[in-house]
Design a protein around this nucleic acid. Sequence first.
DNA 1: ATGCCCTGTTCGTTTTTTCGCAACGCTCCG
DNA 2: CGGAGCGTTGCGAAAAAACGAACAGGGCAT
Lengths: 304, 304
Amino acid sequence: MSLQYLKVFSYIDAVARAGSIRKAAEALFITPSALDRRVLDLEAELGTELFERHARGMRLTAAGELFLDHVRAQRADFERIHGEIEHLKGLRRGTVSIAASQALAYSVLPELLNRLRRANPGINFKVRICDRQAVVTALRTFEADLGVVYNVQPAADLTTLFQIEQRLCAVMAARHPLAAQETVKMRDCLQYPLAMPDTSLGGRALLEGFFARSSLQPNLVLESNSFEMLRNFVRSNDAVSFQIQVGTPVARNQDGVTARVIEERAFPRQPLTVAQLKGRHLPQPALRFLASLREAMGGGASTA
Amino acid sequence: MSLQYLKVFSYIDAVARAGSIRKAAEALFITPSALDRRVLDLEAELGTELFERHARGMRLTAAGELFLDHVRAQRADFERIHGEIEHLKGLRRGTVSIAASQALAYSVLPELLNRLRRANPGINFKVRICDRQAVVTALRTFEADLGVVYNVQPAADLTTLFQIEQRLCAVMAARHPLAAQETVKMRDCLQYPLAMPDTSLGGRALLEGFFARSSLQPNLVLESNSFEMLRNFVRSNDAVSFQIQVGTPVARNQDGVTARVIEERAFPRQPLTVAQLKGRHLPQPALRFLASLREAMGGGASTA
DNA sequence: ATGCCCTGTTCGTTTTTTCGCAACGCTCCG
DNA sequence: CGGAGCGTTGCGAAAAAACGAACAGGGCAT
């Protein structure tokens, strides 16, 4: 829901996103001239240019960034209020926006969402699966209420709600020789070809660190930014892939793929982090989701 | 400054304040019909009535209160952003809104404001002197950035920034017999007629508590909600009035009135409290003012 | 250097939204 | 029961926003 009276603000947002008035106008289904006038008028009212006029388009000025941040925060807060008003009307409605790493897309999030939807049918979800960088960005632009990230570097404008230590797992075909063991060691895995997450993914940094310190030479046959890709790849060969525990069918056998925890002291255990933008008031449904997530993950150390 | 595009929101605010569309319309210099339509349109867009239609006027519904709070918060935050944008332009401009008890109006606030204005001429101030209740209300309605109150009961939605222990003083004419002593006792004061702050003022509760526990009978000749009134009253007779230290010419002689600290164990020393609304981002000038206030008051225990 | 493309912007016109004015229906109170 | 509030509603006028086409200017490849 977006209020009619806030139209102009979403115009600014659109221009900032599109990087040019003409593209933004196309996205908004209005003419560039109309959009241009609204931008100019607003700038006149503020007494400041919000955009630098570049020959290739428009880029936000410092003032523009300030203003846009305010606009987005304000709209996010309106959504929260609107949710609470719906709540008053008896309808337990609302939307929770989540930005999460791929690991969560495998089973944790789908199952949790299903459970929550059965419990409160009025709540809707927006889930965006993306890399760490994008999760942080989504929080900053108020597109996501909550972010769930693995191996994220702390940022000053984020608040960590809670963290869970995650162990790295080796992912392999169910009939793979390694699947016979309860846990595996890295040097066992290195006997086989490796299918690795690429650098945009959280687990990769850990593996890099290990290889750097170790003398073992990995046989890298596949690199991908999609865990689904990796998982489906190892199903029908003897390659081994890696993923944090929460995203794997560890101790299970699903679609011919299974996973085993890696027993290795050398790994610094990076936590899976649930975070929000500092100072934000989260909508009720988001708080409820957070509680369920905490419960489902077996409660880590809270940092709120 | 108020943005053109937020007009409708201030309409809602005006209606809530005035209690009726016709009165609000008058205050806004528009016709009731125009105002009414904006309210109805907004309600339709939200899918909820914001006001209960009463025969005598309109009162906010629960949803309306929620929405209005959002609107006020949003406008206050816009003011902050606007201030920061002005700051970017090089102009050190901005406005600090303060709601304070009468004690501050005597010397602390005027002197502090003068000093601050000399240091940064661009900063303007809005100071509202009012009773404790009104200070809290002003914070809640975003009319004030900071509140300075004596003897305020803690509220869940306020954050105490810092506190300063204040001793109660007896205020009297400079030629009063008690003025010869360095400090006075309550039973000394009771030898004379008393000019008391009334119940809307902070110090009164303390005095009430004392009289309740004591057997001494006060001779109450004047009761007022204005310390200025009380001060000017005792100047030309032998009556004694009371005020917290920060608001008195203690150990000084000003306009024929002076003050002496009361030495009495029985008084629980209520602190002078500087507070803000919980979760608010204060504008830069307000933060600067806060720092100066802290310094001027000799720094109490911070609770931020 | 010279077109060419894409940019933001302006002008005159059309369409949509908002406003003012007068009137209506209602409830409460004297 | 009449008067004084109140919110609300049609209708014409006024204001605001959008449209469509044309203009000015900066980058880029030819």
